[in-house]
Structures are given as structure tokens and as C-alpha cells.
């Protein structure tokens, strides 16, 4: 079913994919936190966090969170009555501010390896 991809439908796809990915992440997050009591496992996990691939994963996670929340704010504003003609503008504002915050936020994570 091919149709032109526009700001609105692109935002919806991103929201859906990031939403599913983040919910799956909750599972892994709680799983590895539940092994905190075991000192051996804890040490293993702590070491894992220094791995550059895991760091890229963390940055990716941040990107998902930012994309989902900024588009979420956009959707809530539109639900609250911001007129339709603003939806594209809001999309670009969300993408821009989200991008800047991702850059700032991922620096402490990736700064060591880049």
C-alpha cells in the first residue's frame, strides 16, 4: 500500500516503531536491574556498559526516547486544540529541538569513544 510519505505519516511511523522498541526495552531494563543483588552478575553488567557497542545502544535508546517524547508533545498539543495548519511546523520544531537535545545528551555517553 504505497502512499506519499509526509510529515504527519512519517511522525506516526517513528512514533509507532519507537514505542514498540521502548516497551521491549522496559523488559530488558527491568531484567538486568533485577540481577543487582547478585554481586557477580552486577560486576558483569557494569563491565558490559563500558563496551562501545553498548554505548552506541545507549545513544540509540536516547534517540528513541527523544523522538517518542517530542512527537508525543506535538500530538498532545494538537489534541489540545492547536490547529491542523500548525502540525507540520510543530513537526519540524520537534525534530530540531529533539536533534539538539540528542546531540547534547549523547555527548557524555559517546564522548569517550568518538
Amino acid at each position: 500500500m504505497r502512499y506519499r510519505l509526509r510529515a504527519g505519516s512519517f511522525a506516526w511511523m517513528i512514533q509507532r516503531i519507537s514505542g514498540v522498541a521502548l516497551t521491549i526495552y522496559i523488559f530488558f531494563h527491568l531484567y538486568y536491574l533485577s540481577s543487582l543483588r547478585d554481586p557477580v552478575k552486577f560486576e558483569l553488567l557494569r563491565k558490559l556498559l563500558d563496551d562501545p557497542f553498548v554505548k552506541f545502544g545507549e545513544a540509540g535508546l536516547l534517540l528513541l526516547v527523544i523522538a517518542h517524547s517530542f512527537n508525543g508533545i506535538r500530538l498532545i498539543l494538537l489534541d489540545m486544540g492547536v490547529p491542523t495548519r500548525m502540525q507540520k511546523t510543530l513537526f519540524f520544531i520537534a525534530a530540531l529541538t529533539g536533534g539538539i537535545i540528542f546531540f547534547i545528551g549523547s555527548w557524555p555517553i559517546l564522548g569517550g569513544i568518538l
Binding site: 509507532r16 514505542g19 514498540v20 521502548l22 516497551t23 522496559i26
Partner: peptide, 13 residues
């Protein structure tokens, strides 16, 4: 909140 938001989203999808 996280679990409600995530799983309600999944139900909807």
C-alpha cells in the same frame, strides 16, 4: 506509568 503507557500502546497497535 511506563508499563501502562507501553502496554496500552501495544494493545492499540
Amino acid at each position: 506509568s511506563a508499563i501502562y503507557h507501553g502496554f496500552n500502546g501495544l494493545l492499540g497497535i
